[in-house]
Design a protein around this nucleic acid. Structure first.
Ligand SMILES: [Mn+2]
Ligand SMILES: [Mn+2]
Ligand SMILES: [Mn+2]
Ligand SMILES: [Mn+2]
Lengths: 225, 225
DNA sequence: CTTTAGACTTAGCTATGCCTAAATACGCCG
DNA sequence: CGGCGTATTTAGGCATAGCTAAGTCTAAAG
């Protein structure tokens, strides 16, 4: 009797996979505490789940060394990412949500929608490749584009770039950025860096915007050429 | 410390409440086995849940005599009914679903949508009062219209009626009915009853339709006066 | 090379919600 | 009124997924 790849994971498992995917994107393995931090769980709960994920063939665990996803685990994670981002895009485009209040809704819905519904939502949107925050939407087959970006503070003075992605989940930050016009797709020019982790000044459409260093780090830009 | 009415029930609890609501609509209390049948669970599982529902103040239980909903339980059930029916209507109106394939999707989504999203969906639809199957959609405050209907076989020969509600969840039946044009809103005239629980013949727009007794029982009609 | 702080795992517990097997109550029929 | 079949509950288990407390490993510092 073959062990079927249960295509029907629990909400918890799906959320763990997404988190591990993010934490391992840069190549390293994900630590127990890093996962616990993101999911706001106690470390032993994470240890327990890691064991179950490994048994289910979704993750590989080197005790005391961290966890990585298997091919199956990565595939499931990308499927969740697609769902999450398609849902966010639909809520903004068709139901009047703003980019700062779609995340929580999508975090629940992503576990409830059928494959069929995700594809219908995507089609209704014209199969978008990016969500409202500029995050790439994996294709139905799991393909995901890798846009190379530079954090705003690393842009030299005088250079013009396009904001391509906003890497914060904070509703307050998203609202402030939208108010300042600093959203994906907008072209800006670097005017000034203040030293000692000070703010950065940019211009957009002739207007000046001063952005604190921490926030500026979350504005990921595409450089010309 | 007051015990907060946890506004956040589990998927299981929400589904039990809906089932108990349906089973008690006609006034009687719901039996353990009736609930178990609908939810496809073992009777002891239902006994256990009934106990928890009673402890949570959502149901009243007379051991060996069945269960009814409290005011809180009924309110929560109506909230779920609203969600379920608004979602079904949206899937059909805006996402190309047909009335025979919305039920399973709604059965899951109803537990994941926020209050806010339900209201946005409803508004996008123009606040419909009936879902694709003719089932009334409770208002946001729990108000539900009580349409008095008659099962098709109880209509006398010669009388013209409007189909107002189709009381089956079977996808095959729904598909057949849609193919025959027997959907809510359609006006039909009773032509013939065959005896011994035989089929019923009706005309719609001049065409004749022969409908088996069991299926005809599920076509609920509004009589003129 | 040893100590030790912090990360990680193990042990053991809780709650939910499902199950089967066994016990018990209800209500009808003779 | 007593027995009997069915409905229902109780007893006891399992899986998932969370927790705290306690034990163990790793790696950096002395
Ligand atoms: Mn989620
Ligand atoms: Mn996003
Ligand atoms: Mn449901
Ligand atoms: Mn319906």
């Amino acid at each position: 009797m073959p062990k079927y790849a249960a295509n029907d994971l629990s909400r918890s498992v799906e959320d763990y996979l997404k988190v591990i995917y993010h934490l391992t994107e840069s190549g390293e393995s994900a630590s127990t505490t890093a996962i616990a931090d993101v999911l706001d769980l106690a470390a032993p709960s994470v240890s327990g789940m890691i064991k179950r994920l490994a048994e289910a063939g979704l993750a590989e665990h080197q005790p005391y060394k961290g966890v990585t996803l298997t091919k199956d685990g990565r595939h499931a994670a990308l499927r969740m990412l697609r769902r999450h981002r398609v849902i966010e895009t639909y809520l903004v485009s068709h139901l009047g949500y703003t980019w700062d209040n779609v995340h929580d809704e999508a975090e629940k819905l992503e576990h409830a929608v059928s494959e069929d519904l995700v594809e219908r939502l995507s089609r209704a949107l014209g199969d978008p490749r990016f969500d409202p925050h500029g995050d790439p939407i994996p294709a139905a087959d799991g393909q995901i584009v890798d846009v190379s970006t530079t954090p705003l503070p690393d842009i030299p003075v005088g250079e013009s770039v396009t904001i391509s992605r906003v890497d914060t989940g904070s509703a307050e930050r998203l609202r402030w950025l939208a108010g300042a016009g600093l959203v994906p797709g907008v072209r800006i020019t670097m005017l000034d860096h203040q030293p000692f982790n000070g703010p950065v000044t940019v211009s957009l459409n002739g207007a000046r915007r001063v952005v604190g260093r921490e926030l500026a780090e979350q504005l990921l830009c595409t450089r010309p050429e």
